[in-house]
């Protein structure tokens, strides 16, 4: 099985590269023959990625969340998986390469640096930690997809306002659809992030004696959660349209990126497992 894991580890970045290239090529050239085949290829890539993650879990006897490079792989999967579901539900096939590029980068870094990790801290074998991390990763995947659609919304908005009717105008869905995609992804991301925070709040005090509510990672996550929560409430109750929510969503995503940097600086946090 170890040999299979190593082989899949090498293959996966190439599969994402091919998927990205096919989606990009189709975006640029709009080849009818690729319309369905690119989706099938992405599905096969996802299946292979699932097998890779399952094999790792079986072989190393822990979920693949014990190192940042394992988490990168799960994140790569979560992003494309979420996009794939969106593509199936909406039949909008043109925004794929904007998402797959993230998976390609994360998986490539993961494949280069990942190590076979049989011995891990006992705490990393915890089931609650597994759910906490997976829901957080899926939550961030949702927020990333929301941000990508938000950026596409802003670009298309600007293009239409400035009478630029180029490739984006031709390929992208309407502004209203992009706004909805961004909003629904943010809601899903927000719900999953809420679950991750909830589990964390319940589990962390019992797992860590030096637990602190002032932990930078906790504070950053809480801030992100608040920003998205506020945006979603205003969108629903104050009937925000167009740019207003999108800018909120992008602000939340920027905060998420900044928080990554901040927590990197404060690596002495109890919230660091590897």
């Amino acid at each position: 099985m170890l040999q299979t894991i190593h082989t899949l580890n090498v293959i996966l970045p190439f599969l994402y590269l091919v998927a990205f290239s096919v989606y990009l090529y189709d975006f640029m050239k709009e080849k009818r023959v690729l319309t369905n085949s690119k989706r099938i290829f992405l599905f096969i890539t996802l299946i292979i990625h699932v097998l890779y993650l399952v094999f790792r879990t079986i072989e190393f006897n822990h979920p693949p969340i014990t190192s940042k490079f394992e988490i990168y792989s799960v994140l790569a999967f979560a992003l494309v998986f979420s996009y794939f579901i969106l593509e199936l539900l909406t039949d909008i096939r043109w925004t794929g390469y904007y998402i797959i590029i993230f998976s390609l980068i994360f998986q490539a870094i993961s494949s280069i640096y990942i190590v076979d990790n049989y011995e891990v801290k006992e705490i990393l074998r915890s089931r609650l930690l597994g759910i906490h991390v997976i829901s957080a990763i899926l939550g961030y995947a949702g927020l990333t997809i929301s941000a990508v659609h938000g950026l596409l919304f802003l670009k298309l908005y600007k293009d239409i306002k400035l009478n630029k009717f180029g490739l984006l105008f031709k390929r992208l869905p309407s502004l209203e659809i992009l706004e909805k995609l961004s909003f629904y992804s943010a809601v899903i991301g927000f719900v999953l992030l809420t679950i991750a925070i909830k589990i964390g709040v319940i589990w962390l005090p019992s797992a860590f004696p030096d637990y602190s509510y002032l932990d930078p990672k906790l504070l950053a996550t809480a801030t992100i959660w608040l920003v998205y929560g506020t945006g979603i409430i205003f969108k629903i109750y104050a009937k925000w349209y167009g740019k207003k929510f999108i800018i909120f969503s992008l602000t939340g995503f920027s905060l998420a990126l900044i928080s990554l940097l901040i927590t990197k600086i404060f690596e002495s946090s109890f919230h660091t497992f590897y």
């Binding site: 298309l156 239409i160 009717f165 105008f169 869905p173 309407s174 502004l175 209203e176 659809i177 909805k180």
Partner: peptide
């Protein structure tokens, strides 16, 4: 055509 790129449904 432009209307379709702005509004859906």
């Amino acid at each position: 055509q432009v209307v379709e790129k702005i509004l859906a449904y």
